[in-house]
Amino acid sequence: MNDSSTEADTEKLVSMNIDQDIPHEQTVEEIVASLGDTVGQTRVDNPKMSCTDVNVFYADKQAIFGVDLDIADNEVISMIGPSGCGKSTLLRCLNRMNDTIPICKVTGDLTLDGENIYGKNTDPVLLRARVGMVFQKPNPFPKSIYENVAYGPRLHGLSRNKADLDDIVVTSLKKAGIYNEVKDRLDQPGTGLSGGQQQRLCIARTIACSPEVILMDEPCSALDPIATAKIEELIDELRENYSIAIVTHSMQQAARVSQRTAYFHLGKLVEVGGTDDIFTNPKHELTENYITGRFG
């Protein structure tokens, strides 16, 4: 791995998480303490994943402060908040992508179907097959469209023969709503597609591993409105089979695609609740300020 860039990224993350929006007279800890307990219902009846008292540190700087949150079966939960509020960091904890950053330390309980994902016996590699991730910038591999989708099934031995694999690839592409656009050129490089198509290809690639949860880190931030609309439609369809957690900067997007919304501020989960409630009737002052556009 490219260590220098990881270091730089980490530094950036740390500074984003800690240094922004802080009045000089108060430390982060004081502000976080002043935010009080999370407003709203953090627990659900049918949790797929749940976080209890999660803290994340980059070296000795704390990026997430005691977050409790459940992700239910077959729901889309959106995480919103100003830049550097820790929403991406929390998302990356859910499939242990933070493991790739050496100085990152996670405490607290994170479970998938009741199993601790940071336990001694959990293999992050198997976890990531169950909890897939779609990244901010479309990142198809420089391989053919077919190979991009077949990558995960091949790794995990999900297919017995070629016909099986073909079937997985086609089904995944169909589920990601891109099959009709690429069916004639499956052997062409995935990097040759447009940005929106690339992102849907990345979603197809994730689906092909048959995950149970899909994490999306600002999946539309690099796309134009039409491509965004397609992805949002897709997210809505995917909800039938998967639990989805999506980090977004667009409040309209959160309102359109999610059933529940969580608002983060400076590494603290400030408020969580039904999306309609949050957007029509926010209980916490900071949430209200954010969604009415007063800051953020």
């Binding site: 590699v125 097959a129 990142n139 591999f141 990558y151 995960g152 690639r205 994730t206 591993c209």
Partner: peptide, 27 residues
Amino acid sequence: VPQAMRDGSLGLGATKSETIKKVVIPA
């Protein structure tokens, strides 16, 4: 090779050596 490539592969549940063998080296 962009870190995004490695993230993409790791995010699909590939191990480090699988990522290197199948994504980083071909790229």
